[in-house]
């Protein structure tokens, strides 16, 4: 396991608010993520997990607050959003892969067209990753020939291959058949070794306990409790957290 660098936060969020008309989804979120950390974002459905990830990736316009990536304010007016997204990867629940491109081309697309790598360089990187997840023989297949789990693993690897400063995973297993969830979680566990900094919204609590360094519990648009994974699950402090955990356990 690569060590976490506590000297300077990779991501810093202060007073993040998001509202749609008069519905407040995020009511002032504070958060710090350190390089190499894997953070599990948990909370009941509708608590604002996806919204928060989308705000960090600048897909969603924020209503108030500030976000810094490695000390640079990325929420400042007029920021180059494309430049920020080059450094922050995101994988969604479903429909991630480009249907008209082979698995290999899905991975090389951004390497070539965003990072300016040559075809040969891009393919070497892509094949390395495909080999690592055991899909090298599928390089020339199209996404519709892959299982859901294989598709999601490809989508994650496609984002990781770009070496993002931060990788956002939004319930990447929740659209999968139960027997396919394991292989995707295995990949995330594997990514820990590469030192990738990850925030993942998830409903897989046992996995969060197992792999995450840090757990953030979002409730009614604010961080209700956060802490080291082991401590968080074995010894929750807040009544809301206890209630949430027991509700899910049943």
């Amino acid at each position: 396991m690569s060590p976490i660098d506590w000297s300077k936060p990779r991501l810093r969020v202060r007073g993040l608010r998001k509202q749609y008309e008069d519905k407040v989804v995020l009511g002032g979120v504070d958060l710090e993520i350190y390089p190499g950390q894997i953070v599990a974002l948990i909370g009941s459905s509708g608590s604002g997990k996806s919204t928060m990830l989308r705000c960090i990736n600048l897909i969603e316009e924020i209503s108030d607050g500030q976000i810094w990536l490695e000390g640079e304010d990325i929420s400042v007016a007029g920021i180059d959003q494309d430049a920020v997204r080059k450094q922050v990867g995101m994988v969604f629940q479903a429909y991630n892969l480009f249907a008209h491109l082979s698995i290999l081309d899905n991975i090389t697309l951004a390497l070539k067209h965003v990072q300016g790598k040559t075809k040969a360089e891009a393919e070497e990187i892509a094949l390395g990753w495909l080999d690592r997840i055991g899909l090298a023989d599928k390089a020339d297949s199209y996404p519709d020939k892959l299982s859901g789990g294989q598709q999601q693993r490809t989508a994650i690897v496609r984002a990781v291959a770009l070496n993002p400063k931060l990788l956002l995973l939004d319930e990447v297993t929740s659209a999968l058949d139960p027997e396919l969830v394991g292989e995707v979680l295995e990949l995330i566990r594997d990514l820990k070794e590469t030192g990738t900094t990850i925030i993942m919204a998830t409903h897989e609590l046992s996995f969060a306990r197992d792999v995450a360094d840090w757990v953030v519990f979002l409730d009614q648009g604010v961080v209700a409790e956060e802490g080291e994974a082991a401590e968080f699950f074995s010894n929750p402090k807040q009544a809301r957290t206890k209630e949430f955990l027991t509700r899910l356990k049943r």
Binding site: N57, I59, D82, R85, K86, Q87, V88, G89, M90, V91, F92, A94, Y95, N96, L97, F98, A99, L109, A110, H113, V114, A155, R158, A159, L162, L168
Partner: peptide, 20 residues
Amino acid sequence: SQRLAARSLGLSYGKTMRLV
């Protein structure tokens, strides 16, 4: 989602349109 996936890989609007 296809557009979002492309944008979050850092592809610009134009490239997202042209390539995806």
